[in-house]
Design a protein around this nucleic acid. Structure first.
Lengths: 337, 337
DNA sequence: CTGAAAGCGCTAACAG
DNA sequence: CTGTTAGCGCTTTCAG
């Protein structure tokens, strides 16, 4: 049977309190006793039982971190952007003894809240990668004092984001350099990170002296089944006869290719396209996709840092981290000069 | 503050025992009392606390499932084959109220075993997707009575695997149909699933009347940094002057392309290649890779089923499930007839 | 059909 | 510096 602090206490002729203090680095313990206990623990193969710890102590932790990734169920963790970020987080937090679990989506369960879910698992902190921000449940969660950090939620207290505005405007620079001026920009939302990126688009137009025309902007969602078709149809019907369509993410751009082909367009021969994220797929396929590459490793490290700092009660650390991006110059944009 | 069974008991004028029994479906409770308790629970927003449950009861569960994915740290969950399988598992087990967490790799920690780790988290069951089978720790884990199911570990009690033998021999059929006879087969291991696949290779040669030549078989690892180079170098130096190299997985095949190009070979102009797994990447890129496609959705569902059956103490269910595969006929093999 | 009491492994005052 | 005691939320005999 598994060894408990009681076994250690008995072996070392001391109380469980003393043993507990050693493992928690609390109180004052003589260094001899400490060594003795540590040695005994090793010999007996002692492993702390997280469930007991989190039961006994509200403050002390279970060393479990919850990941919130509520994009569509089929894509979920198979989305390269997120799997890379999660892996980076995992590598970082494991160094501090934390493990990762996924927080289920409560969208079809109405009698329980996210904070209850977190509580029931004894989760110490949350990394919110993607979540529907328009629900009561989301607001309820954000208002709890569970340590948390988000990706791209610009009005949460601790967040990590990519320098998307700069990325998009640089992308516009690139497109203009290749002769494009009739640009369709697919915008999935009027707020949050989508708004920031949109600002980057406008900024890009401005600094290249291209007058803004509202028909340039297409409203269509991020990647989901059928999102490419929606965006593409709207772009083609926009009335500006675009030479390039800027999709909101790589997957949407990638699946736009067969759709455009089915309509008789060559890509990038007849129409150019761009993506966003820089997933491996977009760079290896043909044509490779011109995209804004997010640095998933850095993002994961930053997310882990912001969360761990809260959990370790570090004081005075930065609360928002913006990670640089770069434009990947692929083959999906034609030089029409 | 969170509601506990004590609050419910008070509200319903009964003991915590009764409440507990209702939630566990144990003992005999009058249906009126049961309804009353369930109603109160809903009103109070009661959520069971998994950590307390698993502390109080060794048999009763924390509804946490551990996933073991110990391939190299950078690839890990970003490997499409595994991210798809894990997502499929997640979708299935969440239906039964289970959540998923990752079991860290203990390769650099020698004072604790996997079963201790499982115990410390109160994990109910394990899905072993990838693990180093040559360690003491692995054997120790397999000998515990923790409910578990593996992917591709053919000598574990409960496992799910793809019909790889059939897949490889069908692939040989396909290659031969396109005129190939000097085939290099990259074999990463002499046991386990790699051996099964190898048997498929031999079977494929046999039924196409191609004499087996030991120089056809190259020993090189599954995907990792530099694995493509190792396999490719050996294949080119094999002495059989291959027209096609069969790599053990898609990622190795994909990264072989730039390497072969750097050596002056066109793919598939000068040399053809094949992969294994059928990750999305391999099918979307150019040239798309001829590969054996594993059905990740079915695999995940089968894994979940075998584990859940154990956890729910279902009796008399199948212990091994073999999932059909298909050959994806991509562009990476040239018709040399 | 229901409840009292003990205990899972651990922590946290509070004494000493 | 160390130990006593109570208790976290829940389950489980064992009585009734």
């Amino acid at each position: 049977m598994a060894c408990t602090i009681y076994d250690i206490a008995k072996k070392c002729n001391c109380s469980t309190t003393t043993v507990s203090k050693v493992f928690n680095n609390t109180g004052k313990i003589s260094s001899e006793k400490r060594e003795e206990i540590l040695k005994a623990a090793k010999e007996l193969g002692y492993v702390r039982m997280h469930s007991a710890i989190s039961l006994a102590s509200s403050s002390r932790s279970s060393h479990l971190i919850g990941v919130v990734l509520h994009i569509n169920d089929e894509k979920s963790i198979t989305h390269e952007l997120f799997s890379e970020i999660i892996n980076s987080i995992r590598i970082e937090v494991e160094k501090d003894g934390y493990d990762i679990c996924f927080l289920r989506n409560l969208k079809d369960v109405d009698h329980i809240t996210y904070s209850q879910l977190v509580n029931s698992r004894g989760i110490d902190g949350l990394v919110i990668l993607s979540m529907n921000t328009k629900t009561k449940k989301f607001n309820e969660l954000m208002n709890t004092d569970i340590p948390k950090v988000s990706f791209d939620l610009l009005n949460s207290k601790y967040y990590v984001t990519s320098d998307s505005k700069e990325g998009v405007s640089k992308m516009v620079d690139y497109l203009v350099k290749l002769g494009h001026r009739r640009i369709c920009y697919v915008c999935p939302d009027s707020a949050g990170i989508a708004k920031i990126r949109f600002d980057g688009f406008v900024e890009g137009l401005r600094r290249n002296n291209i007058p803004f025309d509202s028909r340039m902007v297409i409203s269509a969602p991020y990647y989901s089944s059928g999102s490419s078709k929606i965006a593409t149809d709207k772009a083609l019907a926009s009335g500006i006869n675009p030479t390039v369509i800027m999709y909101p993410d790589d997957y949407t751009a990638i699946s736009a290719i067969p759709y455009l082909r089915s309509l008789g367009y060559k890509v990038p021969g007849d129409i150019s396209i761009t993506g966003f994220d820089g997933v491996e797929l977009s760079q290896v396929m043909r044509p490779s996709i011109v995209t804004v590459k997010q640095n998933t490793k850095s993002i994961g490290e930053a997310l882990a840092k912001l969360l761990l700092n809260q959990l370790n009660k570090v004081e005075d650390f930065e609360k928002e981290i913006t990670v640089p991006v770069e434009v990947f110059e692929g083959e999906s944009v034609k030089d029409i000069n």
